[in-house]
């Protein structure tokens, strides 16, 4: 029998795949010469080594990165269907109610005097704003779904004027949300209200709270955009902080340079 065929049979034998005559045939072959025995031993050793191999643990970042990617995929999916999703959500009734009130208001106004019309409109608009606000707050508070929270942040864009409740919820999201994308969205939403002093100071204060480079850099760039000289001290501290990565420090350097 060819050597090659014999070696293959030996591996099958080591794997315990042989029975009966073939098995005793290989056994005989192994004991026939010293060379055959050495051949067998070396193959056996190799197979044993392979069998002893262990699995290596991936870093926990593998799962975190995956979850982020998954959120993004879900987000972009729901982005395509956003209008539909929104209409299907339970807030539909609140919005519908608000719209109905608005309609009633307008109709009522036609019948009654101008003053009454205005009042009804105001009331309806107020209702609508309230409904949107409730939706934002509810979504931001959803601990189970980052995409739900993201939707909340995005919905806050519809509010032309944000009251303290909304601002506080957005600040809390910016500083405490587990999901980087949600935090980034919260920063963007807050930047829209950056003409309000307490929003500006919350954004500045967040500089030292953020640990993710991408969030840090977004905030730093925002400071430059807002020409916020009040952030210079915090930026300098970021440059000093050895736990920050180089690219964050570089951005902070540039920002201090531009603002000074």
């Amino acid at each position: 029998m060819e050597d090659k065929k014999m070696e293959e049979l030996m591996i099958d034998y080591i794997d315990g795949r042989l029975t009966g005559e073939l098995k005793s045939f290989v056994e005989k072959h192994i004991t026939k010469t010293e060379e055959n025995r050495r051949e067998y031993e070396s193959l056996k050793k190799t197979v044993a080594l392979i069998n002893a191999d262990r699995e290596h643990e991936p870093d926990s970042s593998l799962k975190l990165d995956f979850l982020n990617n998954l959120e993004e995929a879900i987000e972009s999916e729901s982005g395509k269907k956003r209008r539909v999703v929104k209409l299907r959500s339970e807030n539909y009734w609140q919005i519908a109610a608000a719209v109905a009130l608005l309609a009633v208001g307008i109709l009522g106004g036609m019948w009654f005097n101008q003053n009454q019309e205005k009042q009804a409109q105001m009331l309806a608009m107020q209702e609508e704003v309230e409904a949107t606000k409730r939706m934002v707050m509810l979504a931001l508070d959803n601990q189970n779904s980052a995409s739900e929270r993201m939707m909340g942040v995005n919905a806050s864009y519809e509010l032309s004027k944000a009251d303290t409740d909304i601002i506080n919820a957005l600040v809390k999201t910016m500083n405490e949300d587990d999901n980087v994308n949600v935090r980034l969205a919260a920063i963007n939403a807050l930047s829209k209200f950056s003409d309000q002093p307490h929003v500006r100071s919350a954004l500045i204060a967040s500089l030292e709270k953020q640990r993710d480079a991408i969030v840090q850099i977004t905030l730093i760039n925002l400071m430059v955009e807002m020409k916020e000289r009040g952030a210079i001290n915090e930026l300098k501290e970021m440059i000093e902080d050895s736990t920050n990565i180089e690219s964050v420090k570089d951005e902070a350097h540039m920002a201090v340079f531009k603002l000074s």
């Binding site: 070696e7 591996i11 070396s42 190799t46």
Partner: peptide, 11 residues
């Protein structure tokens, strides 16, 4: 066949 060759090569 591939597995057997690979084991031998590894050996």
């Amino acid at each position: 066949v591939k597995v057997h060759r690979a084991i031998k090569a590894l050996r």
